[in-house]
């Protein structure tokens, strides 16, 4: 599979969702239809809020209070962080081990997680302890942009590559996420991933610890020696960062790395992986499935 094909497959990855209005927000006791939507893994929940809001608006108990910027989503009573990519939220909250799927003829047969992913839409009691305030319309864009700058800074030791994008390019990059336009997004993102200033210093990575709020962000050098000959592999990086969860350098024993909902080869060079599977915020997000 070519790099372009993997990027396309990652871009097309999506989560079928069922969204129900929480009963505490409904004006009548009668059942309200759920809203079904397929959300790209690389996208963000606030992007769908206007659509979802319009759908449920006639049923809201108190539209004066239940505004779009007080909307929040919950999965099994867990508030979902709106500034994390949807795919990361799904993988992290379901803890699903995708390796089960390999042996199943029907995709859903052995899956631990029932699809669609069932979310509740809520407005009251915005969980300020867990979620940042959502000042629409710009909050999500601003959070994303700051993460892109952060990734750029990790990559090059300074944020100049992103800062030197034209205002138009920077706006189009976000627009392409909202409209899910692969060509426009990658036309610009390529400039960030492979900057003219030369080879990158570190690969921006985040590792999510299962059933915990802990996220590890550590500079990941692309090569393990200064000679640029031995690429950093995912397995080695994880073993160095989290020796308890990844006690062996050779293979995963008690936990497996998951990227975009797929098990990734232990020996995959992180640099190559990031070129193909980077999220729209410039980071390689790695969730972890515990071996059952």
């Amino acid at each position: 599979m070519s790099l372009a094909a993997v990027r396309r497959a990652v871009w097309d990855g999506s989560i079928p969702c069922r969204i129900d209005l929480d009963p505490s927000e409904c004006r009548s006791l009668e059942g309200i239809d759920p809203y079904f939507i397929t959300i790209p893994r690389i996208s963000y929940l606030p992007i769908i809020i206007p659509k979802v809001y319009r759908f449920f608006e006639p049923h809201l108990k108190d539209t004066a209070r239940a505004q779009q910027n007080s909307a929040w989503f919950e999965f099994e009573n867990v508030p979902l962080k709106w500034h994390w990519p949807v795919g990361v939220l799904f993988d992290q909250t379901t803890g699903r081990d995708p390796s089960h799927l390999r042996h199943s003829r029907i995709a859903d047969e052995d899956d631990d997680v029932k699809l669609p992913w069932s979310l509740s839409l809520r407005f009251q009691n915005f969980p300020t302890k867990h979620l940042m305030r959502l000042d629409l319309p710009n909050a999500c864009h601003d959070a994303w942009k700051n993460t892109v700058k952060e990734a750029d800074h990790v990559r090059n030791g300074n944020p100049n590559t992103f800062m030197s994008l034209s205002r138009g390019d920077s706006a189009s990059l976000w627009e392409a996420i909202c409209t899910h336009d692969f060509e426009i997004f990658w036309g610009i993102n390529e400039k960030l991933l492979n900057p003219p200033s030369g080879p990158i210093k570190f690969i921006p990575c985040r590792i999510y610890i299962p059933s915990s709020t802990r996220v590890i962000q550590a500079p990941c050098p692309p090569y393990i020696t200064s000679s640029d000959r031995d690429p950093q592999t995912l397995g080695l990086f994880l073993h160095n960062q989290l020796p308890q969860l990844f006690p062996s350098r050779r293979s995963p024993m008690i936990a497996r790395p998951v990227v975009h909902g797929a098990i990734v080869p232990w020996t995959a060079p992180v640099l190559e992986l990031a070129q193909a599977a980077v999220h729209a915020d410039g980071f390689l997000h790695i969730t972890i499935a515990m071996v059952q």
């Binding site: 009573n77 610890i209 936990a255 059952q292």
Partner: peptide, 30 residues
């Protein structure tokens, strides 16, 4: 104190089947 998010049922169900080694490792890194 950092606020601890509740754990989704789907995730906690998976955690009950782990080996004691994995449970210890997970607690240590968390």
């Amino acid at each position: 104190p950092s606020p601890q998010l509740p754990i989704a049922m789907s995730t906690s169900a998976l955690l009950t089947n782990l080996s004691s080694e994995a449970t210890r490792a997970l607690a240590a890194v968390a």
